[in-house]
């Protein structure tokens, strides 16, 4: 539907601008705060323009961090988050594409049961099973480890269904042509299914990377060793200054830093991402 009424146009733009302001303003405030010094916040008014301490604040956070809050340098926490987000994204894609492959292309005994088991995990995200999962992870001695951070979040089914859907849209003749061309199951998977699901994998990667990066409750729970703190959980710890005021300029610098990798992933994979969501190239 294409309408061309100026009144409607202006209204639409007003709504959009309002939306942008609502989203962008807090980010701006965080950025401004991260360029100020600690004393700028004592007055009670929030500054709206950047100050002169940008380089100083960021260098300090990346390098040493706020030692009083018990958090390691931000660089360390970002590295931890990166490992966690990448493991979750890659692990989940690998597991779900393989299980979708099995479910769609093979007739094995108890296939129905396997399907339902995967289906049930949809209803059990980490937050629901957090206590028993903690118990299991602790029992396996995985507290304070990258495996403990990522493995429990990898095991879930959402992505399996996405790939199942993708595979179901592949024409049967393609499978048959490959069979006649002498491609066994794994060859078919590698040479045909994987390349054809490339854009879907990219879209999923973006979503899962951000999902993993933004994990909060689970890392907070299972990391007690500062060496394994992730950045999102770390911000919380920094803001919780026990004695005295939180160092807002430093907390905000950390927050701005924490935003960068997801933004980079989205921008870097934007083209593939959009393709994967809207295009069916079969």
């Amino acid at each position: 539907m294409i309408e061309n009424r100026p009144g409607l146009n202006i209204l639409a733009h007003l709504v959009l601008i309002l939306g942008v302001v609502i989203v962008a303003l807090p980010v701006w405030v965080a950025f401004v705060a991260s360029t100020r010094s600690a004393t700028d916040f004592m007055s009670g008014t929030v500054p709206m323009w950047p100050g002169p301490h940008l380089v100083e604040n960021y260098a300090r956070m990346l390098d040493s961090g706020v030692s009083t809050s018990g958090t390691p340098p931000v660089a360390r926490m970002m590295f931890n988050s990166l490992v966690m987000a990448l493991s979750i994204a890659i692990g989940k894609i690998a597991i779900s594409i393989l299980s979708a492959f099995a479910i769609v292309y093979f007739r094995f005994p108890l296939r129905g049961l396997a399907f339902w088991c995967i289906f049930v995990t949809l209803m059990l995200p980490v937050e629901v099973r957090i206590v028993p999962t903690f118990q299991v992870v602790a029992g396996l001695g995985l507290l304070n480890s990258y495996a403990g951070l990522s493995v429990p979040l990898i095991a879930s089914a959402t992505a399996t269904f996405l790939f199942r859907q993708v595979f179901l849209t592949m024409p049967d003749e393609l499978v048959e042509a490959a069979r006649i061309d002498g491609a066994g199951p794994m060859k078919f998977f590698r040479d045909i299914l994987l390349p054809l699901s490339r854009t879907n994998m990219a879209a999923l990667f973006v979503i899962l990377f951000i999902y993993g990066w933004n994990q909060y409750l689970w890392p907070l729970l299972i990391t007690t060793d500062a060496q394994y703190y992730t950045i999102v959980a770390g911000i919380k710890r920094m803001a919780d200054a026990v004695d005295g005021l939180p160092q807002w300029h430093l907390v905000m610098a950390t927050a701005v830093l924490a935003m960068l990798p997801p933004v980079a992933v989205v921008i870097g994979m934007q083209k593939l991402f959009v393709k994967g969501l809207v295009e069916t190239e079969k």
Binding site: P171, E173, L174, E176, A177, I192, P195, L196, E281, K282
Partner: peptide, 10 residues
């Protein structure tokens, strides 16, 4: 040779 050709699109 299939009716819908079944060429590998990629």
């Amino acid at each position: 040779v299939f009716q819908n050709y079944a060429l590998y699109p990629h």
